[in-house]
């Protein structure tokens, strides 16, 4: 579903991502791990067509991000690092606007807004203004926005950021329930989260891929099987 080949991104003289290659199969959940500034968000911005790559190629559903951006954008639901909300709009007004941006048909738009609001637990605040919501609710509206129109690919940049432990568990359960039907890439620096939701892990450090494997084989390869946690692997790999 997602094919990334030798992706490189430079900001002037600084290299944000270097020679990154990976692929995600349909229905898989891939966890993006890495310390702050490792290039997780940059990679996601390139996948969604917001930033162009300096070199390399990205294909989503067989379409190239650079040459066929519209086809790619139509297939992706994206939650950026900061949820892209208009403080002046109500939750309902906002979700309706995003649905229109995504070109969802007018009929059934209301039902679709209610569906995603229900999934993310914002159904009871639909009439509230976005600026009056707590951080957790804002984050959930951000996720709801990404889910509109059930795009086959979901790219979620730190989806559980700013949520309390209960909400975090809810969002994790939600993401897990999306597996199979959606291909998901999510980034986080909360390690247990990856263990709980993802099948595959990609660890980035200073723009380079340091590990890319099944969760189980990763922990097995770096210690004595069950006794090694992902945390130990992570610290070991990103220590350099």
């Amino acid at each position: 579903m997602i094919e990334v080949r030798q992706l490189t991104r430079r900001y002037r003289d600084r290299v944000a991502i270097e020679d990154l290659s990976f692929s995600v199969r349909e229905g898989e959940i891939l966890g993006f791990l890495g310390p702050n500034g490792a290039g997780k968000s940059t990679t996601m911005k390139i996948l969604t067509g917001f930033l162009p790559p300096s070199a390399g190629s990205v294909k989503v559903g067989g379409f190239d991000v650079v040459t066929q951006p519209m086809e790619v954008k139509r297939r992706i639901g994206y939650l950026p690092e900061t949820p892209p909300l208009y403080p002046e709009l109500t939750v309902h007004g906002y979700l309706k606007f995003v649905a229109q941006l995504k070109g969802l048909p007018g009929r059934g738009l209301q039902a679709e807004v209610e569906r995603v609001a229900g999934l993310t637990g914002v159904g009871h605040v639909l009439a509230r203004g976005l600026q009056h919501l707590s951080k957790g609710y804002k984050q959930r509206v951000g996720i709801a926005q990404a889910l509109l129109g059930s795009p086959p690919v979901l790219i979620l940049d730190e989806p559980t950021e700013g949520l309390d432990p209960t909400q975090r568990a809810e969002v994790r359960a939600l993401i897990k329930s999306l597996a199979g039907r959606h291909t998901v890439i999510l980034s986080t620096h909360i390690l247990p989260e990856v263990t709980m939701t993802c099948e595959k892990v990609l660890i980035l450090n200073q723009g380079k891929k340091v590990a890319y494997d099944d969760l189980r084989s990763l922990t097995a390869a770096h210690g004595h099987a069950e006794h090694t946690s992902l945390e130990e692997v992570f610290i070991k790999l990103t220590a350099a």
Partner: peptide, 9 residues
Amino acid sequence: TFELLMTAP
């Protein structure tokens, strides 16, 4: 929110 506009189709 510019990111939203630019990543929508």
